[in-house]
Amino acid sequence: MSATERLAGAALGGRRLPGALGIAALLAAWALAAARWPPHVLPGPDVVLRTVLDERALLLHNAARTLWRVALGYGAAVGIGLPLAGLLAGSPLADRQVGSLLTLLRAIPPFAWTPILLLWLGIGDGSAAIIVFLGALFPIVRQARAGFAAVPPALLLAARNLGASPRIYWIDVVLPGAAPMVFSGLRLGWALAWMSVVAAELVGADGGLGQMILDARNLARPDLAIAGMVAIGALAAASEGLLTAAERHTLRWRP
């Protein structure tokens, strides 16, 4: 084992135990607080665990609906956002005009659109997906645009002078150069997409984890609400992990 590896091992070992202790402390504090309150006010970790197991069908069903909405909105944000970023990076006029519009729209928290969207579109997947789209679009566009703009102009000139086809130009020259920032935007957009979908569903949607948490409130089932939160957290974390792994795999050619 090299000195670096030994150091790394020691550092990890040095951090893992306190990390576990920290989580244990959190769970202990939760259990302590729950002991002072009746289960219909604050259920303890054991109650929540049992609820998660008992209601896993419901949780899975709602998780699927939420994931679908996130996928719809996020997919649209990527599908529209990346080309849009390319346009903004390429054309100063478009950058100013569309950029101003985006700046205005970006300032409105996506969640603020829910009442209007409920009026216009009702409770279907559309409203939630649009909120997700609005949440994810701006970070994706902003980071991707910065990424595209950051590709060294010399490289672009060289590619053009060498007669690169549009396909090679975009896929082999521009994208790899812009990739790190694009990914950063994709990750940020994903996090915001999750925040947005939960917020949208909490107000009124047809099914979904946020809706389930809302219903749990109406029925005075905080254990179900917490179970829903656990599910959301787990899904968000898992999907973020997948995204990071995809990023590492794609960028593995970088030193």
């Binding site: 040095g14 990390g19 576990a20 920290g22 925040m195």
Partner: peptide, 19 residues
């Protein structure tokens, strides 16, 4: 100490505050 404080925060972070 940092790891002890950070671990629970990292656990909680994926849950959107709205939830």
């Amino acid at each position: 100490l940092g790891a002890a404080l950070d671990a629970p925060l990292r656990l909680v972070r994926p849950v959107p505050p709205v939830a």
